[in-house]
Design a protein around this nucleic acid. Structure first.
Lengths: 196, 196, 196, 196
DNA sequence: ACCGACGGGACCTCCCGTTGTT
DNA sequence: AACAACGGGAGGTCCCGTCGGT
């Protein structure tokens, strides 16, 4: 039935926001109840446990992030343009975040790494996909002689992700976009240094 | 009294480790009790609240980080050497972390930004000091003609910190040092690009 | 649902008795748990806090008192008879108290006046109603020429209540009805002195 | 040593005020610590337990009350004058209470009757003394033909005390002296009714 | 599909009292 | 005589999850 699916979605959306803002340990099922207007039964009907809800909420959050990438590569064929497009995506990340509370990948990675293996695996897969995307763009660029073949695509991917997430961390901490923008600025120079 | 100060230190050390591993919301006072062997009364005699303990624990964690910087600049007079020394500090960060659970600055920043203003302020000050350190090294290097004066010291500082923290996040997530090492590798190239 | 309302009533009844016996500060939620056989979750589902339970418990206690007044005026039309009936109600107050622990109005007034504004307001309203009742009886009596019009109905009301409550205090303290009975005896004479 | 006795007195004075305001269950040893500026040891050096402190505090409070009676009978030889003087004492009771928080006899009686036998006994003795005082005045008045011999001195004593304490209860509850003043007004008439 | 009562326990905080030290 | 660390436990509150009912 559609109604049930709708309710499930609503729970997930509110839970994703709450977990992203307060963390998995810091947000309670009661918070989700209040946000959704549902009672205990209404939530536990759709999710066996808070854990299961957390996993679904992270998947939803990751999906929100992925959607931003969807349209951005249209019309960009060259590797350098694609990388620039990706990086420029983050220029509006703070003003129009996919989810309040910063980057769910960063937040969830930091909270789950030592405490929540299931959640940690989900984040790993999310970053795996991100790294693979960057890697693919670079690989094709090298094949097409757009990208300097002496670079290590894996390193570039790690540097991109680390810089963006580190920049988000700082800008969220100071509540000021300047740090993320500096990271983006650096990445743009970096892209130009190896793409012709 | 010396005994009291010792107990207070013991509480802080265990609390810092627990908070760094499980987060402020994820670690309980009972966890601290168990780790220290004290009872509640024994802990609350030294700290008015879990909050106050969290602040003291972060200060302690930050102090542990700072101590690593203390000796590393000895004998290094040139700006480029100093920056390299700083970055190389992080090559052993994962094998011999100052505190189990990763970087307390990163962990605390991510958890506190939307939930715990007092803690967030502490982290801000910690990063302020870090940024100021990098800024000072660069400034002196520019004055001594060791550093290309066209760089923006503020941007370099943000890039250093973002990359290192982002690299730590990734390496902690994958439980593998490679990502942090890539970030460090990139930073070394970056340093060489503007220091003569 | 009827079951819930029943449980709520059961909690209130036990809480009213416990608060009346030991005071609001002296009776714990654990005491209420033990008395009702419920667990904390079962109690806090019905009341957001001990405070809210205390207010509901006082309202219940006041209602028990009010019920005693309900039937006692039947057949008594004259003001003097009504006042006598009210006063005689208290002749059995100690043997068959509406609630163990003495008069909840007295107990709650004494405990709440300097510490618990919300509870104090409830007691005020309870005494307001009592005073209004006495005032109304006297007023009608004056209009019907049954009561000496030179008396001050407000003063009579204050005297009635003060004497009864003071008498209860003493008799509870000595665990002997004599003091309350003396107060009642005095009030009867008082009534005769101004009612024809 | 005088110093010790002084400290003991200081503790008692603060404790008496705190217990009178918040009740025995509602005031904690920590409150006494804060009020006196002493630490645990400083208090438990003088009192074996909170209970013992409570008894001493009540004795002190009762003594404060008794002192008010000391001078008031000077120059008054006639029974009626003495009773009037006693009653008039209470006209300033609310404006200049011997202790903040109302009448310690009333407060302690209400709290202790079902919970604290030792304290209850102390209050009983305090009221015993008060009743005996009134009884003695009346007895002498009867012997001297100043007081109508048909009255029951015991009843008069109970009525006096009940009315004054009940009046204090009401005036404290409403934070307005009118109710106590009405009780006093009634008592004055009462005195005139049996004293010549 | 959703409500809501309830269990059972963990949370942080504060309690009273003891003990060793100065 | 007073301080202050500490034990051990109870305080009120909130947690997550279950289950009977609608």
């Amino acid at each position: 039935m559609a109604k049930a699916q709708e309710t499930r979605e609503r729970i997930i959306q509110h839970a994703a926001e709450l977990f992203n803002l307060r963390g998995y340990a810091g947000a309670s099922v009661s918070d989700v109840m209040q946000a959704t207007g549902l009672q205990k039964g209404g939530i536990y009907n759709h999710f066996k446990s808070k854990d299961e809800l957390a996993l679904a909420a992270f998947d939803y959050a990751h999906q929100l992030l992925s959607q931003r990438y969807q349209s951005v590569f249209r019309g960009k064929r060259r590797a350098g343009d694609r990388l620039l497009a990706m990086v420029e995506l983050y220029e509006q990340f703070l003003e129009k975040p996919p989810l309040p509370g910063g980057c769910p990948i960063l937040n969830t990675a930091v909270e789950s790494d030592d405490t929540h293996p299931a959640l940690r695996d989900r984040v790993q897969h999310a970053i795996d996909a991100w790294r693979a995307l960057i890697h693919r763009i670079l690989q094709k660029g090298i094949e097409r002689n757009e990208i300097n073949p002496s670079i290590d695509p894996d390193e570039v991917a790690s540097v991109f992700i680390a810089l963006l997430e580190g920049g988000i961390m700082m800008s969220k901490l100071y509540n000021h976009p300047i740090h993320l923008h500096r990271a983006i600025h650096h990445l743009k120079h970096y892209i130009h240094s190896f793409s012709q």
